[in-house]
């Protein structure tokens, strides 16, 4: 018996549907809630046993295509393949730094959103509202160009800060939904033993909420990796920027962007598998049927 909290994605905006996150609907929720966010690649089902599925077709297809292109048309493709991956380091750097900032920020935001303290609650909610209403691209421009007189941020810093702020808000919603999905009885049991609110959250609620939260957070991280392509607009030398400069010099737009698309695809597919494996590892205490 599993409830699903469906997330709808509009561009960058992850929304968790109303009826499952309204505070007054806390009671009836099952512990097995799955938060599904449709942004980013779909996380493969860990119980999927068939070898031929969407994930494997996409992955094998992408790898085979890339290899075939490099093998049969080495002229532009092998050249592209040696030039472009220099950007991988920057892409991963921005992604990892952003994850390190966005996940704690998301946790704080999620906790703030369910806080009974009015001011904290208001600050967190306003942050989420404001960030969700502004496109990530605009946020990147804002931190790098608009605030340049004020802050003098490096490219990396501007990229990491804008992406972290943006995804912190989305992740805050995921954390909030994941925490609210834990039945109220758990809180009551902990409180009745003498745990205070803080201890209840950290010893009882969050350890359980993790496994509901982790798949969508992993998904957000993958979406984040894809969105780092946007930072090429501030000349961050990432994968996308490398592709743009190669294409601009050679006019081989079709070839370059095909390779780039396939590289992004392979990375995200592999990462989604990693998330899927982590997810299944988290289900250790479910008991045998």
């Amino acid at each position: 018996m599993q409830d699903k909290i469906e997330g709808q994605s509009k561009g960058n905006i992850v929304m968790v549907t109303e009826e499952n996150t309204m505070p007054d609907s806390r009671d009836g929720q099952s512990k097995n809630t799955i938060i599904m966010v449709t942004e980013g690649p779909s996380i493969p089902d860990p119980r999927e046993w068939r070898i031929v599925n969407a994930w494997s077709i996409a992955l094998v297809g992408a790898i085979v295509t890339l290899c075939c292109l490099a093998w049969f048309r080495p002229d532009p493709y092998r050249d592209i393949l040696t030039f472009v991956p220099d950007g991988l380091a920057a892409t991963f750097q921005v992604t990892l730094l952003s994850i390190c900032c966005a996940v704690p920020l998301g946790l704080l935001t999620g906790l703030g959103r369910i806080s009974r303290h009015r001011l904290i609650n208001l600050v967190a909610s306003t942050y989420v509202e404001v960030i969700r209403g502004i496109p990530l691209l605009v946020q990147i421009f804002y931190f790098y160009y608009a605030l340049s007189g004020l802050l003098q941020l490096s490219r990396t810093a501007a990229a990491v800060i804008s992406i972290s702020f943006c995804y912190g808000a989305y992740m805050g919603e995921v954390f909030r939904a994941g925490i609210l999905a834990i039945s109220k009885g758990q809180t009551e049991a902990a409180r009745s033993l003498g745990f205070n609110r803080f201890q209840t959250m950290f010893y009882v609620i969050l350890p359980q909420a993790w496994r509901t939260i982790l798949p969508p957070i992993g998904n957000e991280c993958i979406a984040m990796l894809k969105d780092t392509a946007l930072v090429s607009v501030v000349s961050m030398p990432d994968l996308m920027q490398r592709a743009r400069s190669y294409a601009n010099n050679t006019y081989l737009y079709f070839e370059t962007y095909t390779v780039i698309a396939l590289i992004y695809l392979i990375i995200t597919l592999l990462l989604s598998k990693v998330v899927s494996i982590m997810e299944s590892r988290l289900n250790y205490y479910d008991g045998k049927r």
Binding site: K31, G185, Q186, Q208, Y285
Partner: peptide, 8 residues
């Protein structure tokens, strides 16, 4: 509903 901690 018992409310045991399922993760422990």
């Amino acid at each position: 509903q018992f409310n045991l901690f399922p993760h422990k």
